[in-house]
Design a protein around this nucleic acid. Structure first.
Lengths: 190, 190
DNA sequence: GACCGCAGGTTCAATGACTGAACCCACAGG
DNA sequence: CCTGTGGGTTCAGTCATTGAACCTGCGGTC
């Protein structure tokens, strides 16, 4: 057969292979359809840290504006974040983590643990501990002392030696202070 | 000010914004640089299920060949998989999960749990239990009865009602049987 | 009321990643 | 020698991401 195999131009599409993992009947695949895109999990991480405003995500993540807008839309549509007017500052918006978003905390924890264990050539960047008892959290965000999953709002976040001690953007500077997760990041409280 | 706003060209970058989350000094970001690309976590999931051969990943995932080749390379380079000649069938290769790859099992577990809890409109697709005691695993892959993290090789996987009971590809058919994680998928054992 | 600046986007061209399909090659068996 | 299979590579088309510029609505100031 010397002639080339001449492709059948069958309008293939039909199935718009978008961002869905076609035909994967698996809860991991379904989860990844929502949080599997580039930047998405980092946005959720920041939201759990207390970041709420568009410009603060922008400053802290260094993400392109268009991508951030898309991700915030997707996450809001998926019920991970909720967009609402800021009551303290009329005219502004804020994106707040919902219960569904809080449920992603163990995922971020365990992924961070893997990243630390695997590539932790340098010092840890942040510590997390159970505010009630001061114990450092286990790999999944559980409290080894109290023996249970710690509610996200009871997690205290402290800077580690791996963090830049004098960052440029105000959000990073705010996140250098010890703080509770979910506690809103306020940049210029007037 | 009629002239365009002429951004400050501060050479900011220096860091070639490739697939790395530039300047994110965070173990989650470092983890995502390895397992955050499209398809990657599903490849790892399949590898933990026991899939080892290029063509089996291809059949089970429905992933484009080129992407699969890239992912297998990346994961091998990152030490998550190991490529080696198949001893049972000379001339073939297999990709085997390393310890580092096994360490991703909790991540997949907790992500699957979130996907199930969040979008679990249909029935679960698979059950996982501790082979030693038969108890169904908790959200992070721990055994509620024995009270500890179950080693991946001691996890038994069973099909759930959400799975297609008569799939086309032989890998999916093999994965319908109850089996241990990591146990190699053998399609045509001759 | 005119002007300003900021928050929160949208638009754009250039580049890079993903897709499906075709092609390729080494090896094993007959 | 011919054929089939495993494990890729190549390619053109499409889609996503990037960085930068542009736009818009609002609240305050003079």
């Amino acid at each position: 057969m010397t002639e080339p195999k001449l492709g059948k131009v069958t309008t293939v599409g039909a199935m718009a292979l978008g961002k869905d993992y076609a035909a994967q009947e698996c809860s991991v695949a379904r989860a990844l359809e929502v949080v599997g895109e580039r930047w998405t999990l980092l946005v959720v991480r920041d939201a759990l840290y207390g970041v709420r405003r568009y410009n603060d995500f922008l400053a802290h993540l260094g993400i392109p504006r268009a991508v951030l807008a898309t991700r915030l839309q997707t996450l809001t549509a998926a019920g991970v974040l909720e967009k609402r007017p800021c009551e303290r500052r009329p005219g502004r918006h804020e994106y707040v983590v919902t219960e569904r978003g809080r449920a992603l905390w163990p995922t971020l924890c365990v992924l961070g643990t893997w990243g630390m264990d695997t590539f932790g050539h340098d010092r840890p960047t942040r510590y997390f501990r159970h505010a009630a008892c001061g114990t450092e959290l286990g790999p999944v965000g559980e409290c080894p002392a109290c023996g249970g999953l710690v509610p996200v709002e009871d997690v205290e976040m402290l800077p580690g030696p791996g963090l830049d001690p004098d960052p440029v953007d105000p959000v990073s500077r705010e996140l250098l202070k010890p703080r509770r997760l979910l506690q809103p990041v306020e940049i210029d409280p007037v």
